[in-house]
Nucleic acid binder design. Sequence first.
DNA 1: GTCTATAATTTGATAGAC
DNA 2: GTCTATCAAATTATAGAC
Lengths: 190, 190
Amino acid sequence: MSSKAEQIMDEAENLARSHGYNAFSFRDLAAKVGIKSASVHYHFPTKADLGAALAKRYTERFISTLNHCIEPTDTTFEIVQRYGEAYYQALVQDGRMCLCGLFAAEVDSLPEPVAAEVQRFFEANINWLKDILRRDPHVRSEEALEADATFILTLFQGAMLVGRTMNQPEAIHTVMEKLRGTDIYTSRVN
Amino acid sequence: MSSKAEQIMDEAENLARSHGYNAFSFRDLAAKVGIKSASVHYHFPTKADLGAALAKRYTERFISTLNHCIEPTDTTFEIVQRYGEAYYQALVQDGRMCLCGLFAAEVDSLPEPVAAEVQRFFEANINWLKDILRRDPHVRSEEALEADATFILTLFQGAMLVGRTMNQPEAIHTVMEKLRGTDIYTSRVN
DNA sequence: GTCTATAATTTGATAGAC
DNA sequence: GTCTATCAAATTATAGAC
């Protein structure tokens, strides 16, 4: 991947995380990068190609970031708090949505390859959360793991959506605090 | 409001709840209704007018539906279950999103009057939930009311978003069940 | 209220020069 | 790799006849 392609993806991600897939054009994007729209097509033949590449890179980076901030001694509680904090930082640093959360809303009008990547993002999140919960001394059934992971994912996706719309990013911290009052942290130390 | 305008809104709502605001056109809509796009402009001068009218009607109907399915003897638990069930039914009956949840994702590319209506939808939901929680024998501070209402709203919005994307509407029931394991239902009877 | 016709703009995409 | 030039299609919206 050339550095120019990455630069294009960086700007495209900014636009997509603000306006969504349907509301940014190759011309908007080219203007941000400082090239012409025909040059964008050289790197990404179609908009679907670009969209799928964006969602894939976003997923890989998101999961990678999560993996890099857990220590073997961390409690489930601490890790899930950091998971929520990742959403908060993504929202508050530049006021932008989760790329795949936003794409998910548009899923019915997304080219199929892009929609598939968005599904993979959610799957990857569920699997990551299940792995974290599996480390927990409290043994859960497979269904309980799935349910707990789904609960955490949907809660933060919703909080991000509502928090951005209402210009209240703190909504993410609000639900993070309320999450303490659930049975998710059965083995919580403090 | 003429019956034709309502018919236009009905079809527009179907399209918008599938594809979002940016991915449906007056031509798509006119074709569904069986008229020409110029005739749609007669009823709604601009797309922003239509979008705002859609969001406003949706909010009023959503809150009205909620109000019509509570009985004085209902417990907080029962009412919040029905609140979640409203999301489930909206998703499973026709596979479509909450109109304002979808619009919320697009908020940065929405005409300002439409964005304002979407904010009002969330505000109305928070206020409705706070009123329900206030009936509860368990006394809460104003901040606790706000936090609990935000928690419930964001959870179901997120579950709807993820559930539709993954073709798993049951995700809403999953989080509904997990919601029982929180301190939201402090005064729950059963 | 609905139509035809059309304006003005934007969109995703391609051909071909450099 | 990037450009100019251009295309075909779609978009929001308006004017004016019926």
